[in-house]
Design a protein around this nucleic acid. Structure first.
Lengths: 244, 244
DNA sequence: CAGACGCCTTGATCTGCGTCAACCGGTGCT
DNA sequence: AGCACCGGTTGACGCAGATCAAGGCGTCTG
């Protein structure tokens, strides 16, 4: 396995402003060298860097009034709801470059908790301010629409009716792809979330997740050691994820 | 049971333009008498009325290139995907006043099929044109953000890990609430979708849905007769939906 | 009008996954 | 060092809901 992902919190490599932005959700519209300098300036003057949040800290809580959205700069965040009789439901995990809080626009309150899973650094955007900028800069409005639309797709994906093996395979490939998109290794990586959280996210019992991982490992599809994962046979996993 | 909902396709009562708009997703920003006359004019000149689509007709298909979104004016639409081995997954049902196609913005292709369940009338909006209007009229941009955000919530709701009874109870109350929001009866209504579709949407077998409905009926929570539903004890259903 | 087909329901059986229980190794606290 | 605790794994068992099978009813078709 590689080195980068073993060193703890996931981060853009050298920590410079520029590197942060290259992994960010707005990267495509506001990277220096990209065609939209104006967008870059506008965003840079409305973003606030916040963090670090420590493991277990809340970034926002269910029912907090909505005002800001966040982009993850470093670390990992989970969002979850807890229903009327205390059952937790993990809604998502967010890696660097991903956006949190978009599901709060409609109810105007956060409909879930957001919790740091390790040391978390964020960019905070006032949503009203961002909306104003968006109405002046089409690229940014467009990007917001895309991000929102993408989240609908992600949630529908989760809602699909699939077996334990399909879900686990799809989850691992999904994570791998997201790491790859940020320039990390897609074959070996560190999971910053507990088995419990992954299982909950996949709507499985932790025991079931454990058994599926063992089975995959016995079949040589991957190697798992604690939270370190190495994908050995992505083709076969793809096939499983699609319901072979 | 009442009369209106027995007469077939669901529609705003008198069919006038004004009535259509009062049930529409943009109603709140563009109703005459509302404060934003400008928005009203802008939207009215970019909307196209289309339909009727007949039962079973496709409004769009998976992988069609994205260009337009639709608001339902009359009738009911279902969206669904079919996975690599032909398993269908119903993603949603859309009643008058609801928006279809928002999940296509990101991939720039429709990620699902949209199929008419009865006689369907739609308002069609070119999305690029709508985005342009949105950047000039804050209320419309805001409304689009809200609609997108709402869909994330709806999809997450569906993804929640709940028992057959919880899902069915929540579904019926959800439909009732949406009818009520459009000015129809919340206690008695007509389902325009087949049991198969509802079951699929709820990730249940059709047989399970049938049994749960029977049980609810035996407990006096509701009366079902084919596709006619009458909610008898909304309190109790609420309790069940929350996982009593 | 007869037959066929689709939709829904009901009953019997099967099974994937949840639940319960026990155990292991690592980590932090006293 | 000793102990408690937490996260993860494994095995035995049970159950909610899927699957299989059959039958009823309404509608379309020839």
């Amino acid at each position: 396995m590689g080195e980068l992902y073993k060193s703890g919190a996931v981060f853009a490599d050298d920590g410079s402003e520029l590197q942060f932005c290259s992994t960010c959700a707005f990267g495509s519209v506001c990277l220096p060298g990209g065609y939209d300098k104006e967008a870059l300036r506008a965003l840079h003057c409305l973003v606030e860097h916040v963090g670090p949040y420590r493991e277990g800290e809340y970034i926002f809580r269910t029912n907090d009034p909505f005002g800001v959205i966040y982009a993850v700069r470093g670390g990992t965040v989970k969002t979850c709801t807890v229903d009327s009789l205390g059952r937790e439901q993990v809604l998502g995990f967010y890696l660097p470059g991903e956006m949190i809080g978009l599901n709060a626009i409609h109810p105007e309150r956060y409909p879930c908790d957001a919790i740091a899973l390790d040391a978390v650094y964020l960019c905070r955007f006032s949503f009203p301010a961002l909306a104003t900028v968006a109405s002046q800069i089409p690229g940014i409005q467009q990007q917001l629409f895309r991000l929102l639309s993408k989240d609908i797709g992600a949630a529908s994906q989760l809602a699909a009716d699939r077996s334990a093996e399909e879900r686990v395979a799809a989850f691992l490939l999904g994570i791998a792809g997201r790491f790859a998109a940020r320039g990390f290794s897609a074959s070996g990586f560190h999971l910053s979330m507990a088995r419990t959280d992954i299982a909950n996210y996949l709507r499985l019992a932790a025991e079931t997740l454990s058994r599926v991982l063992r089975r995959f490992q016995d079949q040589g599809l991957l190697a798992v050691e604690g939270r370190e994962v190495e994908i050995r046979d992505p083709q076969a996993l793809q096939a499983l994820a699609r319901g072979a």
